[in-house]
C-alpha cells in the first residue's frame, strides 16, 4: 500500500505566496539508478534563495536554488533540469550516490 507521506510543501508555498513572495516549485519527475528522493519529492524556492523541502539528499539543492532564482527573473513559466553522477575532480554539483534525477521547475503566480 502506498502511504500518503506528505511534507506539506504545497501548503508552505501557499503561505509564502500569501506573504507576497515569488515562489518556484521544484518537483522530482524522473529518477534513474539509486537516487535519494523518489518521484514527486518537492522543494520550493523564493526570490531571495530561501528554500524548503528537498529533491535530493542535499546533493543538488544549491544548484536547484540557483536555477529557480534564474527562472524567477526569466519570462518562461517552467524549466526541466537533469542531474547526473558527480565528477569527482571538480566542485561541480552532482549526485554522489550514482543516480540521476530530472527536476521540473515551475513558477506559481
Amino acid at each position: 500500500m502506498k502511504n500518503s507521506f506528505d511534507e506539506k510543501i504545497l501548503e508552505e508555498a501557499n503561505d509564502w505566496l500569501n506573504a507576497n513572495q515569488k515562489v518556484v516549485l521544484a518537483t522530482v519527475i524522473q529518477t534513474w539508478g539509486s537516487s535519494p528522493r523518489q518521484v514527486g519529492s518537492r522543494m520550493i524556492v523564493n526570490e531571495k534563495g530561501d528554500f524548503s523541502g528537498s529533491v535530493s539528499g542535499g546533493c543538488v539543492e544549491s544548484a536547484v536554488v540557483r536555477e529557480c532564482i534564474g527562472l524567477i527573473k526569466d519570462n518562461k513559466p517552467c524549466k526541466k533540469i537533469e542531474f547526473k553522477v558527480s565528477n569527482e575532480s571538480a566542485w561541480e554539483v552532482g549526485l554522489a550516490c550514482g543516480g540521476e534525477i530530472a527536476v521540473y521547475l515551475e513558477k506559481i503566480n
Binding site: L10, A13, N14, L17, L25, E106, K107, I108, N109
Partner: peptide, 8 residues
C-alpha cells in the same frame, strides 16, 4: 501553476 490552482 496558478496560485488559484495551488489553493484548490
Amino acid at each position: 501553476m496558478k496560485h488559484s490552482q495551488l489553493k484548490e
